[in-house]
Design a binder for these strands. Structure first.
Lengths: 201, 201
DNA sequence: GTCTATACTCTGATAGAC
DNA sequence: GTCTATCAGAGTATAGAC
């Protein structure tokens, strides 16, 4: 990928990544084709490969940018804040990520589901370290009796599972709910109740 | 697909479906190839296509069988039973499905994630109807004050999300936990606590 | 029923004109 | 920088021998 210098290069790179996100998140890596991405981007296939050296490289660029976005809400948990408010805020921010960036959530889910062939290092490195640090914070709050004692890592897993479910299984959620529902608004109310009860000391 | 009559036909069909499950669940529909399935099955590629008319047909056979297995635990919820015990039992059976049939869970997740192109009818039909029926049962229990009042459908979503997470995101769960953990045993303890608190009237 | 050989299509990537 | 044309390989499916 040539270092985007000019405005036009910058713009085209972004157009390609946007189109690639659309296609990869809906079809998975193998299911997506350069033809589809080119069509969505409104560019020719060889032109895609002028900006990125390969299909693999486009995918990798998306994943690299994604992990940071994905972990940001967790980083924001403040050890000095009010425990329940911090955890509720984290849950809410993760749910907002699902609502506002469902394609990113599905891109991530596709990758993990298939064994994380291109993200394993990041998961075993950055993600694991961050989770360990924040689990320590949660543990401290439990020791102080400020929230109920539960397994801190599984508490984080539960927030991931419950919030990402609404993006990753969107089709199923909407099909089962039927018309006239706002899945994310209902989810927020349900999850608030759930975590308020779970965390009460 | 020829109606399996002889014992050898029966056996080969099963061998193919077992191999196909292995490959489809790990790679998705497009990512899987007949070559891979043939190799895992220990058969030649044309031989696969003697038993099933196409790659599509193999996949369809797996999905059709899957949905029933997947919904069985929900069907077993007994309106006459003890509400908390019934819901806890459902959660536990779903978690056991994730633990004992993780490939089936990932096959299902792959399908939904990509928009359920081959399962939409079943979801909008059987699954939606079953959920509506069981949501009615839950509602009745809430009206009687036997469990806390929460959105019954989102309660079911939460059980799906939390239990399937351990199969679908297995790689991430194990990477983050590190060695020396039994994810499913820990999950069961965590989820028991979670639902006991959530459901307490 | 099972195999080898092969037809045909799709797809990632490159060549080369402009 | 962008396009048309095209190559090479992979992948689904079929033909036909045994």
């Amino acid at each position: 990928m040539p270092r985007p210098k000019t405005r036009i290069q910058q713009k085209n790179s972004e157009t390609i990544l946007e189109a690639a996100l659309e296609v990869f998140s809906a079809q998975g890596f193998r299911g997506a084709t350069l033809d589809q991405i080119a069509e969505v981007a409104g560019l020719s296939k060889p032109n895609l490969l002028y900006y990125f050296p390969s299909k693999e490289a486009i995918h990798q660029a998306l994943l690299t940018a994604l992990l940071d976005t994905w972990l940001d809400p967790l980083r924001e948990i403040n050890p000095m804040g009010d425990p329940v408010a911090e955890i509720m805020g984290y849950m809410r921010r993760k749910l907002e990520l699902s609502r506002d960036f469902p394609r990113e959530s599905r891109l991530f889910a596709n990758e993990i589901l298939q064994g994380a062939p291109r993200m394993r290092a990041a998961i075993e490195g950055d993600m694991k370290a961050l989770v360990a640090a924040k689990a320590g914070v949660l543990h401290g709050w439990m020791d102080q009796g400020r929230i109920a004692r539960v397994d801190p890592v599984h508490l984080l897993f539960s927030i991931w599972a419950l919030t990402q479910h609404y993006a990753d299984f969107d089709v199923q959620v909407r099909a089962v709910l039927g018309d006239g529902h706002d899945p994310y608004a209902e989810a927020e109310a349900f999850l608030k109740t759930l975590y308020r009860k779970l965390l009460a000391p």
